[in-house]
Amino acid sequence: MLDDIDRRILRLLQADPATAMPELAEATGLTPARATRRVDRLRADRIIQGSHAIIHWPALGYAVSVSLRITLDKAVARAFDEFISAARAVPEVIEIQTFLGRVDVRLSLIARDLSDYQRIYREDVLTLPHIADIEALMTVASVKSDESLPL
């Protein structure tokens, strides 16, 4: 079970994953050694599963973001596995989610511009196996993107 110090550590790391251990220790009232042990335990318990850079794709020339809702042909026994394996190989696919319901899979993909998206869609997406239906939703604006939990 998490105590108040664990929650404080998680809040601080959510706000800035690059927080140095001495700063984390000072902010939580622990010694650096005790703070390190706490963080190590949170990692060992898989509560902290890593840290990552958040990339602003337009700054790298990817101006188009599209969400594809895909329904698979459920008559094929390995449709999910084969589709996901093939989708992972598309470099522009940055996220794959599976669902219960009418839509089976959502792919998030990025492209440099509309002609690049059209190429990716025709050459890579439409050749993915077992697609029964597909709906493309182009992102106009990302209003909120935050994975932080209120701890």
Rank of each mutant, 00 (worst) to 15 (best):
residue 137 L to V: 13
residue 18 A to K: 11
residue 123 E to M: 09
residue 120 I to K: 11
residue 110 I to S: 02
residue 89 A to H: 11
residue 73 D to S: 08
residue 69 R to T: 03
residue 22 P to T: 06
residue 79 A to G: 09
residue 116 D to H: 15
residue 77 A to C: 00
residue 11 R to P: 03
residue 109 L to I: 06
residue 21 M to F: 12
residue 20 A to C: 02
residue 25 A to T: 03
residue 133 D to K: 12
residue 96 I to W: 07
residue 78 R to T: 15
residue 74 K to N: 09
residue 94 I to T: 09
residue 101 G to N: 01
residue 98 T to N: 12
residue 118 Q to E: 04
residue 138 M to N: 06
residue 126 L to M: 12
residue 13 L to G: 01
residue 22 P to Q: 11
residue 77 A to V: 06
residue 88 R to Q: 14
residue 64 V to P: 10
residue 151 L to W: 14
residue 39 V to M: 11
residue 49 Q to A: 13
residue 25 A to C: 01
residue 64 V to D: 10
residue 116 D to S: 06
residue 110 I to T: 07
residue 22 P to N: 07
residue 79 A to V: 09
residue 32 P to S: 02
residue 18 A to E: 04
residue 128 L to W: 03
residue 23 E to K: 00
residue 123 E to A: 14
residue 132 A to N: 10
residue 107 L to D: 02
residue 125 V to L: 03
residue 40 D to Q: 15
residue 100 L to W: 13
residue 112 R to P: 05
residue 65 S to H: 13
residue 93 V to T: 12
residue 133 D to C: 04
residue 103 V to H: 05
residue 121 Y to T: 04
residue 63 A to P: 01
residue 69 R to H: 14
residue 119 R to H: 14
residue 15 A to H: 12
residue 46 R to A: 08
residue 29 G to P: 01
residue 138 M to A: 12
residue 46 R to S: 09
residue 133 D to P: 00
residue 18 A to V: 09
residue 12 L to A: 04
residue 27 A to Y: 01
residue 129 P to K: 08
residue 44 A to R: 15
residue 16 D to E: 11
residue 20 A to T: 00
residue 40 D to G: 07
residue 151 L to R: 05
residue 113 D to A: 02
residue 62 Y to C: 09
residue 1 M to R: 12
residue 86 A to N: 01
residue 62 Y to W: 12
residue 13 L to R: 01
residue 54 I to Y: 10
residue 143 V to D: 01
residue 146 D to S: 13
residue 143 V to I: 15
residue 37 R to Y: 07
residue 99 F to I: 10
residue 83 F to Y: 12
residue 136 A to N: 08
residue 8 R to S: 11
residue 94 I to A: 03
